[in-house]
Write a protein that binds this DNA or RNA. Structure first.
Lengths: 210, 210
DNA sequence: CGGAAACGTTAACAAAAGATAATTAATCAG
DNA sequence: CTGATTAATTATCTTTTGTTAACGTTTCCG
C-alpha cells in the first residue's frame, strides 16, 4: 500500500509515457506496493527471474554482474527513475545481474503478476499496452545511445561526455563503478582523469613561472 | 502494394510479436508497401527523420555513422529482420546513422504515418499498441545483450561470441564492418583473428615436426 | 576511538589497440 | 580477361589499457 503523495509522484512521472484517467488510476494504484531496501540489500539477484519493476522514490540503485568473483557495475539509477532487470522481467528468464541498493532506498514496485492481470483487464488493458510500449521505446533509445558511444567513442570521450551530460552521476557514484560503466578498469579511469587535468595544471604553472 | 505471398511471410514473422486476426490483417495489410533498394542505395540517410520501419524480404542492410569522413558500421540486418533508424523513428528526431542496402534488397515498409493512423483506429489500435510494445521489448533485450558485452568482455571475447552465435553474419559481411560492430579497428580484428588461429597452426606444426 | 576495509592514485611492466604504411589477396567494372 | 579498386594481412611504432602492487586517504564499523 502506498500513500497518496507517493502515488502522485509516480503518476506524474508516468505522464512522461502515458496519461492515466482517474478511473484508470483507481485500478492501477492498488496493485502498487511500497518496498524499502536497506543499503546493500538486493532488489534483484542473479539467477532469479525478475518479477518486478521498481520506481525509486528515494535512494540509489546499481546493477552489477559478477565476473570471476569480482563485481562489474553496468548501470545506476536514482530518484524518479525506473529500475528492473529488464531482460529477465520481459523474457522471464533468470537474471545475470544483481540490482542492489547503494543507500537506504524506497521504491514503488509493480509486479509482473499485476502487469499480466492488468494487461487482461478490459478496463485498462489498452492503456497498459501503451504504457509498456512507451516505456520500452524510451529505454530502447537510451540503450541505442549507449551502444553508439561504445562503437564510436574512446573511453576518454565517453568519460568526457558523461561528465558533461550526467555530472550528477559522477558526483554520487564511486569512481570504480563509473569505470565499469564506461567499460574500462578503475586504474584506467584514474589515468584518464589525470590526463584530462594535466593541461590545466601546466597552464597554472605557466602563469606562475617567472 | 505487396503480394499475398509477401504479406504472409511478414505476417508469419510478426507472430513472434503479436497475432493478427484475419479482420485485423485486412486492415494492416493495405498500409504496407513494397520497396526495392539497389545495392548501395539508402533506406535512410543521416540528418533526415526516419519515417519507416522495414522488413527485409531479401537482401542485407547495414547501419553506419560517418565520423570524420569515414564510415563506422554499427549494425547489419538480413532476411526476415526488421530494420529502421529506431531512435529517429520513435522520437521523430534527425537520424545520425545511414541505413544502406549492401546488396539489391527488397523490403516491406510500413510508415510512421500509417502507424499513427492505425494507433488511432479503434478496430486495431489495441493490437497496434501491443505490436509496438512487443517489438520494442524485443529490441530492448537485444540492446541489453550488446551493452552487456561491451561492459564485460574484451574485443576478442566479443568476436569469439559472435563467431559462435552468429557465424552467418561473419560469413556474409566484410570484415572491416564486423570490426566496427565490435568497437575496434579492422587492423585490430585482423590481429585478433591471427591470434586465435595461431594455436591451431602450432598444433599442426607439432604434429608435422619430426 | 582505532583498526580494518575500501578507494583513488601512482608506478612498472606486459598486452593490446590505434595509426600509418606497405604488401598481398580478392573483387569489380569495363 | 585485365587493370583498377577495395579488402585483408602484416609490420612498425606510439598510445592506451590491463594487471599487479604499493601507498596514502577516507570511510566504515565494532
Amino acid at each position: 500500500m502506498i500513500s497518496e503523495i507517493q502515488g502522485n509522484i509516480y503518476r506524474k512521472f508516468l505522464e512522461k509515457f502515458v496519461s492515466f484517467t482517474d478511473e484508470e488510476w483507481a485500478i492501477f494504484l492498488p496493485v502498487l506496493e511500497l518496498k524499502k531496501l536497506k543499503k546493500k540489500s538486493f532488489f534483484m539477484e542473479a539467477g532469479k527471474v525478475c518479477q518486478e519493476v521498481g520506481f525509486i522514490l528515494q535512494g540509489t540503485v546499481r546493477c552489477y554482474y559478477v565476473k570471476d568473483g569480482t563485481e562489474v557495475t553496468t548501470y545506476f539509477s536514482f530518484e524518479n527513475e525506473l529500475i528492473s532487470s529488464y531482460k529477465s522481467f520481459l523474457t522471464e528468464t533468470p537474471s545475470i545481474t544483481y540490482v542492489e541498493a547503494m543507500e537506504n532506498t524506497e521504491l514503488i514496485v509493480f509486479s509482473k503478476k499485476s502487469l499480466q492481470l492488468l494487461l487482461e483487464d478490459s478496463r485498462i488493458k489498452y492503456k497498459m499496452e501503451r504504457f509498456g510500449r512507451t516505456v520500452a521505446e524510451y529505454y530502447l533509445c537510451c540503450y541505442d545511445d549507449r551502444v553508439f558511444s561504445f562503437v564510436t567513442q574512446t573511453p576518454e570521450q565517453r568519460y568526457l561526455e558523461l561528465l558533461s551530460s550526467r555530472s550528477d552521476i559522477l558526483a554520487r557514484i564511486p569512481q570504480h563503478y563509473i569505470a565499469n560503466y564506461l567499460g574500462i578498469t578503475p586504474v584506467s579511469l584514474s589515468r584518464i582523469r589525470s590526463r584530462i587535468m594535466k593541461p590545466h595544471i601546466s597552464l597554472l604553472e605557466t602563469l606562475q613561472s617567472p
